[in-house]
Protein backbone atom coordinates (compact mmCIF):
# COMPACT_ATOMS: atom_id res chain seq x y z
CA UNK A 1 0.00 0.00 0.00
CA UNK A 2 1.30 3.39 -0.92
CA UNK A 3 0.59 4.86 2.55
CA UNK A 4 3.14 2.58 4.22
CA UNK A 5 5.53 2.82 1.29
CA UNK A 6 5.66 6.60 1.88
CA UNK A 7 6.32 6.11 5.59
CA UNK A 8 9.14 3.62 4.85
CA UNK A 9 10.70 5.95 2.27
CA UNK A 10 10.60 8.81 4.78
CA UNK A 11 12.66 6.76 7.21
CA UNK A 12 15.15 5.32 4.71
CA UNK A 13 15.53 6.74 1.21
CA UNK A 14 14.40 10.23 2.09
CA UNK A 15 15.91 10.38 5.56
CA UNK A 16 16.23 14.11 6.09
CA UNK A 17 19.23 14.01 8.40
CA UNK A 18 21.54 11.61 6.56
CA UNK A 19 20.28 11.73 2.97
CA UNK A 20 18.99 15.25 2.47
CA UNK A 21 21.20 16.86 5.17
CA UNK A 22 18.35 19.15 6.13
CA UNK A 23 17.50 20.43 9.60
CA UNK A 24 21.10 20.15 10.73
CA UNK A 25 20.90 23.09 13.11
CA UNK A 26 18.47 21.52 15.60
CA UNK A 27 19.99 18.12 14.89
CA UNK A 28 23.44 19.19 16.01
CA UNK A 29 22.13 21.33 18.87
CA UNK A 30 19.92 18.83 20.65
CA UNK A 31 21.71 15.56 19.99
CA UNK A 32 23.70 15.96 23.21
CA UNK A 33 21.64 13.31 24.96
CA UNK A 34 19.30 10.55 23.85
CA UNK A 35 16.48 11.91 25.99
CA UNK A 36 16.67 15.28 24.23
CA UNK A 37 16.75 13.54 20.87
CA UNK A 38 13.54 11.65 21.62
CA UNK A 39 11.89 14.85 22.87
CA UNK A 40 12.81 16.82 19.79
CA UNK A 41 11.85 13.92 17.54
CA UNK A 42 8.38 13.53 19.05
CA UNK A 43 7.69 17.27 18.97
CA UNK A 44 8.88 17.62 15.37
CA UNK A 45 6.85 14.60 14.24
CA UNK A 46 3.66 16.02 15.72
CA UNK A 47 4.18 19.38 14.03
CA UNK A 48 5.17 17.72 10.74
CA UNK A 49 2.01 15.64 10.59
CA UNK A 50 -0.13 18.68 11.41
CA UNK A 51 1.52 21.14 9.06
CA UNK A 52 1.67 18.61 6.21
CA UNK A 53 -2.03 17.99 6.62
CA UNK A 54 -3.02 21.67 6.64
CA UNK A 55 -0.72 22.64 3.78
CA UNK A 56 -2.06 19.76 1.72
CA UNK A 57 -5.65 20.86 2.41
CA UNK A 58 -5.05 24.38 1.10
CA UNK A 59 -2.61 23.39 -1.66
CA UNK A 60 -4.90 24.07 -4.61
CA UNK A 61 -5.96 27.40 -3.26
CA UNK A 62 -2.57 28.94 -2.46
CA UNK A 63 -1.19 31.32 -5.13
CA UNK A 64 2.27 30.25 -6.35
CA UNK A 65 3.88 33.64 -5.72
CA UNK A 66 3.19 33.70 -1.98
CA UNK A 67 3.23 29.98 -1.13
CA UNK A 68 6.37 30.15 1.03
CA UNK A 69 5.12 32.95 3.32
CA UNK A 70 1.79 31.17 3.63
CA UNK A 71 3.44 27.87 4.53
CA UNK A 72 5.58 29.62 7.11
CA UNK A 73 2.54 31.28 8.66
CA UNK A 74 0.77 27.91 8.80
CA UNK A 75 3.78 26.21 10.40
CA UNK A 76 4.38 29.01 12.91
CA UNK A 77 0.70 29.01 13.87
CA UNK A 78 0.78 25.29 14.37
CA UNK A 79 3.93 25.35 16.47
CA UNK A 80 2.62 28.16 18.69
CA UNK A 81 -0.71 26.41 19.13
CA UNK A 82 1.00 23.13 20.07
CA UNK A 83 3.29 24.97 22.47
CA UNK A 84 0.49 26.82 24.26
CA UNK A 85 -1.84 23.83 24.44
CA UNK A 86 0.89 21.59 25.75
CA UNK A 87 1.90 24.17 28.35
CA UNK A 88 -1.63 24.57 29.67
CA UNK A 89 -2.94 21.01 29.56
CA UNK A 90 0.15 18.80 29.70
CA UNK A 91 2.50 20.76 31.96
CA UNK A 92 4.65 17.74 32.82
CA UNK A 93 5.26 16.96 29.15
CA UNK A 94 5.85 20.62 28.37
CA UNK A 95 8.50 20.82 31.05
CA UNK A 96 10.43 18.09 29.23
CA UNK A 97 9.79 19.07 25.59
CA UNK A 98 9.13 22.77 26.07
CA UNK A 99 12.53 23.96 24.90
CA UNK A 100 12.31 22.05 21.63
CA UNK A 101 8.95 23.26 20.45
CA UNK A 102 9.93 26.85 19.56
CA UNK A 103 12.99 25.45 17.76
CA UNK A 104 10.71 23.63 15.35
CA UNK A 105 9.53 26.88 13.71
CA UNK A 106 12.97 27.31 12.20
CA UNK A 107 13.39 23.65 11.32
CA UNK A 108 13.77 23.57 7.56
CA UNK A 109 12.58 19.98 7.31
CA UNK A 110 9.03 21.09 8.07
CA UNK A 111 9.06 23.79 5.38
CA UNK A 112 10.91 21.44 3.06
CA UNK A 113 8.22 18.78 3.30
CA UNK A 114 5.44 21.35 2.92
CA UNK A 115 7.04 22.54 -0.30
CA UNK A 116 8.29 19.23 -1.67
CA UNK A 117 5.49 16.87 -0.70
CA UNK A 118 2.39 18.28 0.95
CA UNK A 119 1.79 20.98 -1.67
CA UNK A 120 1.68 18.28 -4.37
CA UNK A 121 -0.13 15.40 -2.70
CA UNK A 122 -3.46 14.74 -1.03
CA UNK A 123 -3.91 15.07 2.76
CA UNK A 124 -3.91 11.29 3.33
CA UNK A 125 -0.48 10.75 1.78
CA UNK A 126 0.80 13.96 3.33
CA UNK A 127 0.07 12.57 6.79
CA UNK A 128 1.98 9.40 5.85
CA UNK A 129 4.89 11.56 4.73
CA UNK A 130 4.73 13.48 8.03
CA UNK A 131 4.88 10.25 10.03
CA UNK A 132 7.71 8.76 7.94
CA UNK A 133 9.89 11.85 7.82
CA UNK A 134 9.23 12.49 11.51
CA UNK A 135 10.27 9.00 12.56
CA UNK A 136 13.28 9.14 10.24
CA UNK A 137 14.33 12.43 11.82
CA UNK A 138 13.87 11.03 15.31
CA UNK A 139 15.88 7.87 14.55
CA UNK A 140 18.65 9.96 13.01
CA UNK A 141 18.75 12.19 16.06
CA UNK A 142 18.77 9.22 18.42
CA UNK A 143 21.62 7.53 16.59
CA UNK A 144 23.68 10.70 16.68
CA UNK A 145 22.81 11.31 20.31
CA UNK A 146 23.69 7.75 21.32
CA UNK A 147 27.26 8.17 20.05
CA UNK A 148 27.61 11.63 21.56
CA UNK A 149 26.11 10.81 24.94
CA UNK A 150 27.95 7.53 25.41
CA UNK A 151 31.32 8.89 24.29
CA UNK A 152 30.94 12.42 25.61
CA UNK A 153 29.16 12.01 28.92
CA UNK A 154 29.60 8.31 29.60
CA UNK A 155 25.88 7.83 30.07
CA UNK A 156 22.96 6.41 28.12
CA UNK A 157 19.50 7.84 28.74
CA UNK A 158 20.97 9.46 31.84
CA UNK A 159 22.23 6.14 33.28
CA UNK A 160 25.92 5.93 34.00
CA UNK A 161 27.87 3.37 31.98
CA UNK A 162 30.89 3.50 34.22
CA UNK A 163 33.19 5.22 31.74
CA UNK A 164 35.81 6.99 33.80
CA UNK A 165 36.87 9.89 31.64
CA UNK A 166 34.43 10.58 28.82
CA UNK A 167 35.62 12.69 25.89
CA UNK A 168 33.92 15.98 26.64
CA UNK A 169 34.48 17.19 23.09
CA UNK A 170 31.77 14.80 21.89
CA UNK A 171 28.96 16.72 23.56
CA UNK A 172 30.41 20.04 22.44
CA UNK A 173 29.72 21.37 18.91
CA UNK A 174 32.88 19.85 17.29
CA UNK A 175 31.77 16.42 18.45
CA UNK A 176 28.46 16.92 16.71
CA UNK A 177 30.11 17.72 13.38
CA UNK A 178 32.54 14.82 13.67
CA UNK A 179 29.81 12.32 14.49
CA UNK A 180 27.46 13.41 11.74
CA UNK A 181 30.33 13.41 9.25
CA UNK A 182 31.21 9.81 10.03
CA UNK A 183 27.59 8.67 10.11
CA UNK A 184 26.76 10.39 6.82
CA UNK A 185 29.80 8.81 5.16
CA UNK A 186 28.76 5.42 6.50
CA UNK A 187 25.19 5.68 5.26
CA UNK A 188 26.23 6.90 1.84
CA UNK A 189 28.71 4.06 1.56
CA UNK A 190 26.23 1.46 2.84
CA UNK A 191 23.47 2.85 0.63
CA UNK A 192 25.67 2.55 -2.44
CA UNK A 193 25.45 6.23 -3.35
CA UNK A 194 28.21 7.74 -5.41
Amino acid sequence: MRFFRIIWDGITKENQVFKAALGLCPTLAVSTSVENAIGMGVAATLVLIGSNFVVSLIRNWVPKQVRIPIFIVVIATFVTAVDLTMHAYFPALHEKLGIFVPLIVVNCIILGRAEAFASKNNPFYSIADGIGIGIGFMLGLMLLATFREVLGAGTFLGKSLGIKEPALIMILPPGAFLTIGFLMAFFNWAGGDK
Binding site: I70, V73, V74, T80, L84, A88, Y89
Partner: peptide, 21 residues
Protein backbone atom coordinates in the same frame (compact mmCIF):
# COMPACT_ATOMS: atom_id res chain seq x y z
CA UNK B 1 -4.57 35.15 0.15
CA UNK B 2 -1.63 35.94 2.38
CA UNK B 3 -3.72 38.42 4.34
CA UNK B 4 -6.53 35.90 4.79
CA UNK B 5 -4.12 33.23 6.06
CA UNK B 6 -2.48 35.71 8.43
CA UNK B 7 -5.83 36.90 9.77
CA UNK B 8 -7.10 33.36 10.29
CA UNK B 9 -3.85 32.38 12.04
CA UNK B 10 -4.05 35.44 14.22
CA UNK B 11 -7.63 34.70 15.15
CA UNK B 12 -6.92 31.04 15.92
CA UNK B 13 -3.90 31.90 18.02
CA UNK B 14 -5.57 34.64 20.02
CA UNK B 15 -8.46 32.28 20.71
CA UNK B 16 -6.02 29.62 21.95
CA UNK B 17 -4.13 32.27 23.93
CA UNK B 18 -7.31 33.37 25.69
CA UNK B 19 -8.04 29.78 26.65
CA UNK B 20 -4.56 28.79 27.74
CA UNK B 21 -2.98 31.92 29.18
Amino acid sequence: ALTIVAVISGAVLSWIWDKTN
